[in-house]
């Protein structure tokens, strides 16, 4: 009986809960169900490839599997912008999950990735939330903030009137500590906790800046095709199931981590005042249309999203 080993490059550092919870789980499940015929060899973020090259490496078939954020594949995936989260679109995690799996957005992503020989499977949907040093009580509080941000959210926060700048992750803690920035987002509670941000920023801002499929597992189609049919099926099923297991588990761990931060480090939840929220939503909606302009698929996905949010009574 032949065993196959897949090299799997993560975009999470080893201390990140997702490294063990997502990749560790997938490894266990796949190895169990294939009776050890398929083994996953895990590598931490950056060990083999720069995170942004992982999609390329999987697409070329150099790596059999990897994890990414959709934003790392923006260059090729026109749907990536929508996948990594339009600000202030969904209000609950279940909505994003429903949109992905029951409205067909996940399939659209899979189809687009297939053009590059990549099998796309969203690992989970979850919120991105900010931590700040001083609570935001008014619109003026918000616009006077200096926030560490990146990617589309940086554009959004700047557009909305805050001063968003990019600072590399390795300097984030010091920057927050010394007051170079007053706020930052790094995932949500678990991300902030793992980076030690609660030590220096005590207010956890709700609601989320976005809720999206920010973590994705990608598989080389070439490697998948080489497996016997039963094993291909096992991998795909494990990935489908992974989405629901992880989305749910992540929600649970978010709450537990936030509770711990509140109890142990005196963190407080800072819910944005209604008028601030309303203004942010308005800015956000103005930006959504940009994403729809990238391709026919993106336009279609944006249309679907708007209809969905309309049905929920949000638009």
């Amino acid at each position: 009986q032949e065993t196959v080993t897949w090299k799997v490059q993560s975009h999470w550092p080893g201390s990140s809960s997702s490294y063990t919870d997502s990749l560790g789980r997938l490894k266990r499940v796949i190895e169990e169900r294939t009776d050890g015929r398929l083994k996953l060899q895990l590598f931490e973020a950056g060990a083999l490839f720069k995170a942004k090259d992982t999609f390329d490496a999987v697409s070329r078939g150099i790596l059999e599997m990897g994890t990414i954020s959709p934003s790392y594949a923006q260059d090729k995936m026109t749907l990536a912008g929508i996948a990594s989260g339009l600000p202030f679109a969904f209000r609950h995690v279940w909505e994003a999950a429903y949109f992905h799996q029951n409205m067909g957005f996940e399939q659209m992503l899979r189809d687009e990735a297939a053009k590059y020989g990549v099998y796309w499977a969203t690992d989970k949907v979850y919120p991105t939330e900010m931590v700040v040093k001083k609570p935001i009580k008014s619109w003026d509080d918000f616009t006077s903030l200096k926030i560490r941000s990146s990617g589309a959210l940086q554009t959004f926060l700047t557009e909305a009137g805050a001063a968003a700048s990019y600072i590399p992750g390795s300097e984030l803690y010091s920057a927050l500590d010394s007051g170079i920035v007053d706020g930052a987002h790094w995932g949500a509670a678990q991300g902030a906790y793992s980076m030690g941000l609660y030590e220096v920023a005590k207010y956890h801002v709700k609601p989320a800046l976005n809720i999206a499929g920010t973590d994705v597992i990608i598989v080389s189609q070439k490697a998948l095709d080489k497996l016997p049919e039963d094993m291909q099926k096992i991998v795909k099923q494990a990935l489908d199931e992974q989405f629901w297991v992880r989305t749910n588990e992540y929600q649970y761990k978010e709450r537990v981590t936030l509770a711990k931060a509140i109890a142990e480090q005196g963190v407080q939840i800072n819910t944005l005042p209604d008028d601030v929220q309303a203004k942010l939503v308005k800015t956000a909606q103005g930006m959504w249309d940009e994403e729809g302009k990238r391709s026919e698929e993106a336009k279609k996905a944006l249309g679907m999203l708007k209809e969905f949010l309309g049905n929920l009574g949000y638009l």
Binding site: P13, S15, Y173, D177, S194, G196
Partner: peptide, 9 residues
């Protein structure tokens, strides 16, 4: 700190 999860401070 990032890899092991201890506090940077």
């Amino acid at each position: 700190a990032l890899i092991t999860g201890v506090s940077v401070g």
